[in-house]
């Protein structure tokens, strides 16, 4: 038996609701997820692919995406997973993401006037483990607190707090060891 008009309307309303919800999510979080990807990927194309894949997953799983601020954290988790796959060479090139890549390519120009101090921080940061770097990045770049870091990394809030504390201590240690004269390296 074919569906009644009422049933068809109900199905259409549900579909429209999901679409509207995804559009709202996309509008509220796209810039931030793009920022997350650009800060972690070595090229604009890679970053755009990660964003495209992340939102494609969010669309498929729109009913599972939490509302409010938790949605952003949920997307960070997905993006983090996509990024890990990407590093294993397992994320596709999205033709459609190329136009997005064009918009952020300028961000990949080498910083010409990086101060000696900033260079020292970069060197120290690069020497840290990937795990430590991610903990510090989530706090400094995404502006997350221990609770947010815990959600994204899948650990307890207390564990996140300890990891943030230890990562900061190790960065200071690296800075002090590399450049004892730089104030940032002092306790």
């Amino acid at each position: 038996m074919s569906p009644t008009i009422e049933e068809r309307k109900r199905v259409a309303a549900v579909a429209d609701g999901r679409t509207a919800r995804f559009e709202a999510l996309y509008a509220a979080t796209f810039d931030r997820i793009l920022g997350y990807a650009v800060r972690r990927c070595d090229s604009a194309e890679d970053a755009a692919d990660v964003v495209a894949e992340t939102f494609a997953i969010a669309w498929r799983r729109i009913d599972a995406v939490p509302s409010g601020e938790a949605a952003r954290l949920w997307l960070y988790v997905v993006a983090r997973n996509v990024l890990a796959n990407h590093r294993r060479g397992q994320v596709r090139r999205h033709t459609l993401a190329r136009a997005v890549a064009d918009q952020v390519r300028g961000r990949y120009a080498p910083a010409a006037d990086e101060s000696v101090e900033a260079q020292a921080v970069r060197t120290a940061f690069d020497r840290m483990s990937e795990e430590d770097r991610e903990v510090l990045a989530l706090v400094a770049w995404e502006g997350l607190d221990a609770g947010g870091v815990a959600t994204v990394l899948g650990c307890s809030r207390n564990a996140a707090r300890i990891r943030i504390h230890r990562a900061r201590r190790r960065l200071r240690h690296h800075l002090a060891a590399d450049s004892p004269a730089i104030p940032g390296g002092a306790r």
Partner: peptide, 26 residues
């Protein structure tokens, strides 16, 4: 210190979602 290492800040990308590239992707 770490903040300064960021290639881009979210604020720098504000509004990107409303552009044609992001709309086509959506």
């Amino acid at each position: 210190d770490v903040d300064r290492l960021a290639r881009v800040r979210d604020d720098d990308l504000a509004g990107t979602h409303a552009g044609p590239a992001a709309a086509a992707l959506r």
